[in-house]
Amino acid sequence: MAETTTAGVSTTASDSRPIAARTTDAVKEYGKGDAMVRALDGITVAFGKGQFSAIMGPSGSGKSTLLHCIAGLDRLTSGSVHIGDIELGSLNDRQLTMLRRERVGFIFQSFNLVPTLSALDNIVLPLTIAGRKPDPAALAEVVRITGLGDRLKHRPNQLSGGQQQRVAAARALASQPEIIFADEPTGNLDSSASTDLLDFLRHAVSALGQTILMVTHDPLAAAHADRVVFLADGRVVSEMLGPTADTVLDVMRHLGD
């Protein structure tokens, strides 16, 4: 049975588990004067450790903006973001880079991989960038669950879109970050490749205790998450624990657009 709280008020992680990332009164404005857009309009939200959270909402509701701000790719106009205990607003560019390198993993919608590197090199790339040696056991595990096996030596353009996204997911996992951000990771995949990828992410959360925050449009994708946060016009309007495709679709319809 899905729990749903309704709109407006601040929302926190619904159980007592430790918090991986949170925002307080997050506001993001683009442009100035008449052309000003308020992409985030005072968002206070927290995401628990070891949880698979999804963010949903109509196009233009601020999902990507929120994700970018939490991940340290963009800065808030006001309010604060924490990853673990670290407040991102006080970090300079280099410190943000280090934070992304040490604590964060990413899966983008497409063009995730560096075309000149093999799948395996792409997977260990964040470690290479950080000048760290991969933990062989952890790496072997990650590689195993991607199911890529013999294709690890291939370049990205020799892999299917689904395989590429799994390499991107494996890359995000390989550095064992505190939290993985995924912006519509299944956006370019067909339903079976999507299911493969989502199962993979689900497994990472359930079996490895990974924390994932995923933006998606797809109720089927959201159904793989533990919790869904709904945005509209830059605000949190609703959230749901233990979502299913049907309940998510309901809320989405309700939000209308």
Binding site: T97, R100, R101, E102, F106, F108, F111, P126, I129
Partner: peptide, 16 residues
């Protein structure tokens, strides 16, 4: 550009 953006997101510093 896009590739460099990905690398930067993955933690590559400006000096790298």
């Amino acid at each position: 550009t896009r590739e460099i953006g990905v690398l930067r997101a993955l933690g590559m510093t400006r000096s790298q």
